[in-house]
Nucleic acid binder design. Sequence first.
DNA 1: AGAAAAAATGTAAGCGTTTACAGAGTGAGG
DNA 2: CCTCACTCTGTAAACGCTTACATTTTTTCT
Lengths: 342, 342
Amino acid sequence: MNIYDISKAAGVSIASVSRVINGADNVSEKTRKKVMDVIDEYGYTPNAYARGLGRGSMKTIGIMCSDSSDIYLANAIYYLETELRKNGYNCILCCTGYDYENKKASFELLKSRQVDAFILAGSKYVEKDSKDNQYIIDGAKEHPVMMLNGYIDADNVYSVVCDDKGGIKDAFIKLYESGARKTIYVYSSDSYSGSKKIEGIKEGARECGIPENSLRIVKGEKTFNGIAELLEKEYEKKPFDSVITSSDTSGIGALKFAVRRGLRVPEDIQIVSFNNSKLASAANPELTSVDARLEESCSRVCKLLMKLLNPPLDEEGNPKPVSISKKTKVKSKLVTRETTRF
Amino acid sequence: MNIYDISKAAGVSIASVSRVINGADNVSEKTRKKVMDVIDEYGYTPNAYARGLGRGSMKTIGIMCSDSSDIYLANAIYYLETELRKNGYNCILCCTGYDYENKKASFELLKSRQVDAFILAGSKYVEKDSKDNQYIIDGAKEHPVMMLNGYIDADNVYSVVCDDKGGIKDAFIKLYESGARKTIYVYSSDSYSGSKKIEGIKEGARECGIPENSLRIVKGEKTFNGIAELLEKEYEKKPFDSVITSSDTSGIGALKFAVRRGLRVPEDIQIVSFNNSKLASAANPELTSVDARLEESCSRVCKLLMKLLNPPLDEEGNPKPVSISKKTKVKSKLVTRETTRF
DNA sequence: AGAAAAAATGTAAGCGTTTACAGAGTGAGG
DNA sequence: CCTCACTCTGTAAACGCTTACATTTTTTCT
């Protein structure tokens, strides 16, 4: 059932059918009705490839994320997909894993799918070796790239990032004010936001008058037990009275450590995690967590993207140049629950 | 940069270029090299629409799920997407929500994207009014529909379901054997698997010699607090000594109830949840949970799909008819942790 | 060396749309 | 009644690929 079938059945030309299904305004009511009747009867759905070929845009966004089963990213995908679909765009999802080659291959793949734009969700798309970001920079020459919680300085690459640094800094200071003097920071991945968080810790310490060399910053495997065991070892070395973690998953790990060690939370040890995902409120006791304002961030990403892809037109029908800042920062917010004394 | 540009630059015909990029074996090494060199130099990516148009398949699977931020579904999406991509297929994701009209609209949308098949992930796609499944049944006439944890009896609709009934039944019996005599079952959605689980409870009770009318089965909102408050009310009415929940989210709710009420787990009250997602092991104490074997189920879905879409060929190159059972059941498995005495 | 078979390559016709442009129909104004 | 302007409709050429079929080149066999 294609446009020819419909045109034949309705006794009009394919151009008229095309006009009707695209809601053009230069079609007579009579024709519109004839066509619609036939479509309703036979249940025709236009072929999106042919459309894409014909008009050069598929109204499709490629979303890359390392692992959609990560609670944080799963939420991001949900927000992004829902919002984009409202705007008439569909999403092709690629779970790329963490490996550079795979990430690059996924990008190419989405390119072949002629996506109108890319969204790189999560902070894993900024490689340490900046040469390895080249494929993104090149890709951006054709289609805009939006980075959620990542940042690369390049043409046509835009970022929406959470204020990781500020969020962590606030947490550190709050802990200090509530009496914590021996805080340990646990993180599990080196990434754009990862380094910002470490900056936050350092800044917080500075403001509290803690010398940087007495700061404890450790890296562990991003699993509940991985973190719990890491903290166990660290505690053996030297006890601490509070933990800040770079994710809720690690926060849960910290909690498990405390339980196993028989430490009371928050009396003996305070914990602040990051993201404020479902895990934070699922925990027992519930985790105090820095809310990364994911929904807000995703909504910004979509809004910027729509502006870029459908720029407003001037009187003559030419797209007006839009000025969009390359980096949008979303303020994080500390959500106080049961694992802290403040 | 299209196939003509490449063919010109390489001094061969577009057919040869096409053969090279599709890895056909009837190309001379010389030609292949010429073409590959040009492609490497200019960085050509074939246009997937044109390909789809040309060969009638886009190698794309449409995945529908109600809410990709649900931990269970997020995992499913990850497993499905990863596996399908390994087989050369891409996924278009649609988060449809729970509303019938939206689900139907999403299905149509994927149809217009000419997906080669549909995967309906989660048990929310079997409507109560069976008329409302018609769009799926009709759609299946064109492209196979795979249901993950749902079942509709129709041509070209295939199901992979977890043995919900058996899993819940086992949990019930285990609880009984460990001394539980007043078990309450909490669920939060009516769906295909939802009704199977209730059957499981009833069967378990029967085997333990508990009369069906003394069985407590209650329905609540699928949030931590929603479930906790529901149980609080139920406990006021009449205490119970064990809870089975239809999801880990509800299991966490049950745990919150116990904590607030000051009940010791598992001494005063035992809890068994369902799915064995990350939430179950994040909980404190960790939840005993029925593992729905999601990874196994997803892998089955993909394998079946690949068989359907790429049936083996006989000597003459015609597709051999494959016989695929309409319903594959995956055995669930009880994972014992800290919220039960067994 | 020549014929036949096999392999490599090229040509051209689709695939189902969109859209510029041309053409037909309608109504108003002179 | 003719012309002009306007609205509506149709024709045909893209869009970038795949692939059946025809043609050319190479290899094999006698």
